[in-house]
Design a binder for these strands. Structure first.
Lengths: 209, 209, 209, 209
DNA sequence: CATGAATGAGTCTTCATTCAT
DNA sequence: AATGAATGAAGACTCATTCAT
């Protein structure tokens, strides 16, 4: 009985804590997306969330940790969506296509996430910080793609190529189109680009008959 | 007589002025690339260039103008290099290939430029500023590509597709790979990616026999 | 019956209350001694004591009152020890010696108390606050010494001097040596200093034969 | 000619810089003395000096450096005064007396310095910082005294004792009396204490006839 | 009694910019 | 043309204190 009370108490505390953190992280994404990272001061984020200035410092060790959590949230959400789509596909070619299509679909539905992401891309001071971001965030994406491509080669669906290089290329093509779309929503047609890229990478990977 | 002296004086002044501006712009690129935009204060740039704090404010209206000049310099230099290569190619397919290969070649030879560029990418506060950057800097690149593609279609070298969408896709693929390479030089093999993309876009654009 | 219960309740409450206050005061001394007063936030003290942040505010009107209680505890404990030693001495010269020796003995056994005290010494903002601290805490010490010295003069054990000045001098010598020892335990030999001061003040107060 | 101009330029620059630093350091001493270290924010110091908030940050790396410079100034000025007096004395006993008397004389003439010093005494967070302060500031004082005492022993003017311990005792007695006087100017008679201590240490060090 | 989330005032610090020399 | 001292706004962060649970 006692353990139950304690548990409830702890869960409640954790729950409130987690809810606040999520709320602040989402508010930060929204503020960054609408005002730009340089203008997204803790004061402004707090104001947008509707809490006092000190709350953020209370829940996060500092601005660095908040941004880190934003990045984590951004990638986690995207990856979860893509993975679900990819896992539903029957074979490697379809999985590759699902990866590309899901990426663009998620973009279209979550513009603020990517606007914020582009701002954060350029905010890492040192080369070392850039490297760490790449290792923590981009490597898993590339490895996911690499796995799809490699298994496709093993099954004989794909021709011979460097899975590593093609993974970087697929991810790069998606990100690069996204970048232009972030700068101006009207500059590129997301659906057309998705279709074009899906077709191109399909052609480029399939074994010649 | 007097006007001549004045002219000489002005020309000399203009020359010195221009030289100083170029020197500062190049120093800014170098500082941004090595320390990151957030750490690249005017004081630090001035220190790296080896001039006093006030010189930058003397030659530029403000930090915004300096960054704008940096962006201009970055794109101008890149575009000049690519254009020279493209113009030497005999037909549309070769011009497209030249565009891609020249892009990667220039990257490899001017890493600091692109590290700085990625930092600046994320520094535009408002959506409006992002849009303007896109219109001023990216649109010309896409239009250049679009022209190559459209003429290729007119000549019958290329199949039917949306030149606009494919231009965005080509540029996107180049930028996206560049981004990963900026984060970590060792993360991607630039030459392999260049070859892969050149081949893919060649296949994707050519008219089916 | 009821009153009895209430009384018991109150006594128990008072007892718990007092225990908590003592616990917090002692925790504060320890935290101040190890981290320094500037770093000894209520949050940190609470953490070191092992209670929640709000408990201190619950039991003390504010940080000022807590520090005041710390000062009280510091002086009370020290004075109790010294007084017990002094009262055991047979005559004025022995009482003076006992005062000095007990002071150093208590120091050696309660280092944290004095490290904390030195930090608090310097934390009184206004001249008025300094004066009040002196009146409340140092005056009693000097008066204790003054009484010893004056009675020694009345008994003919001591030569003629200003008891007030000598009291300040004795207390000063003790505190000044303590200060150096607080800064660096290895900087001074407490026992040697105690012996030296005891001897010196003995010589300086005794009536010339 | 050119070198002269340059030299003048540099000297002037250095001179202005040094003057400002001195001005700020003296302002800081005055503010600390009147308001207490905890209330002596950079904003308040700047206001008292009559300059803008940013000037202090411009001339000092941070508050820590400012306080360090205050400490340096405090000790340098005091030591210079004492040393001049001591050096004029003919032999060791007179030098010891000069040390004590000069200390008290300087105190009386520079109250703010010592009020500030007592506040700073307690502001060193970690034991390590306290140790460093002791090593940098107090050790030279004690070594000065130690030298006087040791040479007095070698000349046969002083009896046998530990110069190190007696140095700590002399310095301690001076500081401890000073402390009480800092808390309340009326609490101790500086001149009387000086005379008493000078006499006592004279008696305590002299060789018995 | 106790908790800890929330507050907002206050502090240090950085920085673009101005201006007298 | 260049300097660098000075400014003041804006930022992140700390902390004593309050209060609903």
């Amino acid at each position: 009985m006692r353990s139950k009370i304690d548990q409830v108490g702890q869960n409640k505390a954790s729950f409130i804590e987690e809810a606040r953190r999520r709320q602040i992280v989402e508010g930060a994404i929204s503020t960054i997306a609408s005002a730009g990272l340089p203008q997204a001061s803790l004061a402004r984020i707090a104001q947008d969330v509707g809490v006092s200035r000190g709350v953020i410092s209370y829940h996060f060790a500092g601005k660095d940790e908040l941004i880190q959590q934003v990045v984590n949230a951004l990638f986690a959400e995207t990856n979860r969506f893509i993975k679900a789509r990819v896992d539903r596909a029957p074979d490697a070619p379809h999985r590759l296509r699902a990866f590309i299509e899901a990426s663009f679909e998620f973009m279209a539905a979550n513009r603020a996430n990517f606007v914020a992401l582009v701002d954060i891309w350029g905010s890492f001071g040192s080369p070392e910080a850039k490297r760490r971001f790449n290792a923590d965030m981009y490597d898993p994406c590339r490895r996911h793609l690499e796995g799809i491509l490699r298994r496709g080669q093993e099954n004989g669906d794909f021709r011979d190529f460097s899975p590593r290089t093609l993974a970087a290329t697929v991810q790069g093509a998606i990100d690069g189109v996204m970048l232009q779309w972030v700068f101006d929503e009207a500059a590129v047609d997301l659906a057309d680009c998705a279709a074009e890229l899906a077709m191109m990478f399909d052609m480029a990977t399939r074994r010649r008959a």
